[in-house]
Design a binder for these strands. Sequence first.
DNA 1: ACCTGAACACCGTTCAAGT
DNA 2: ACCTGAACACCGTTCAAGT
Lengths: 199, 199
Amino acid sequence: MTAVSDLSVNASPDLRSDGARNRERLLEVAQAHLLAGDPTLPMHVIAREAGVGVGTVYRHFPTRQALLEALAAKPFALVVQAAQAAAAEPSPAEGLRRLLAAALEALTTDPSLALVLESPEVACLETTQMLSGLGEAVGTVVSRARAAGLLRDQMGPDDLRKLLLGVRHALVLPGGSPALRDTYLCVLLDGLRQPGLCK
Amino acid sequence: MTAVSDLSVNASPDLRSDGARNRERLLEVAQAHLLAGDPTLPMHVIAREAGVGVGTVYRHFPTRQALLEALAAKPFALVVQAAQAAAAEPSPAEGLRRLLAAALEALTTDPSLALVLESPEVACLETTQMLSGLGEAVGTVVSRARAAGLLRDQMGPDDLRKLLLGVRHALVLPGGSPALRDTYLCVLLDGLRQPGLCK
DNA sequence: ACCTGAACACCGTTCAAGT
DNA sequence: ACCTGAACACCGTTCAAGT
């Protein structure tokens, strides 16, 4: 169980002051794009809006994936913490519930996190570390939940990830209201349990 | 209840023979792109691979949405038929199950259908007609299922659409096996029912 | 009718030149 | 160290010219 809270998220340790400022501006502009519903993050546009040359974007973020991971770092760390807390919950049911609720909240709030958790490749070391910490904690939550009969036999940590991303997808489709989040979370939680009518 | 089976799907009624041939080639090339996992359908590329000028693509399909809807027409018609059959099922449970199973099968087989059902806008009249036919049939399935206690109170036809698209999203994430489809369908079916542990 | 492809605007990415 | 922006390749879309 590695502590994650002390990872200096969005680390920009030895950067010249102008470099650090540019990096922040780029992250702000990119974040605004994501929140505005555009996940494409055109590098030219980001550069222009941040008032820097294109080359500067590529200097700070060699790929769009790297930019995404930088944006996702903060919410990602929160989810890892929540997962660790869930793994330490006395009640397996409560642990599972809190894990899924926290993850779904973060996923629907921060588009970057969903993009990173969906992507097969990883650009930053920090992301790898958080993925590993998350995997460990979720593994614990899952095995405790399964022992309590809260999960079908086939369901592993990766199924939870995929289904959560699926529910998130459903929630962000046009015309959805934020109130649906709790409802769909319940659908998932109840559906994950050992078979009722189905199979 | 409008009959859909006699809709001449992908109608190309009064087209010159070369026009019809080009249209088919374009659809084939585009379909191949989708099946290869690229949903972007670059018009230039489609044109080149089909051996026609770009303008020809735009002549047949004024927007990419129109191209998508043409590709989706066949699977869409199948789903409408399945929904109508499900609405006529004696058992509400069996009707709901068959509807979701048929829809999920079509959605995971044909990327174009998912794209069309996710899109807020409609380009072709034919699509509007099928949407309306689908809505009617699904409405019947849903009200019968709800009366049988198979659906939570909050769940309407549109929630079914969104959640199915969400499950489809989960299924197409990298590293998924086709065997997961039935499992996730069960998760959805069981989760949709009146509350168990959750809420 | 239908088709072609040049033309223009735009985005991704690199890299030589600047400070 | 870091930044700039020209340069090249590519894709979206239109439209004048062809058959």
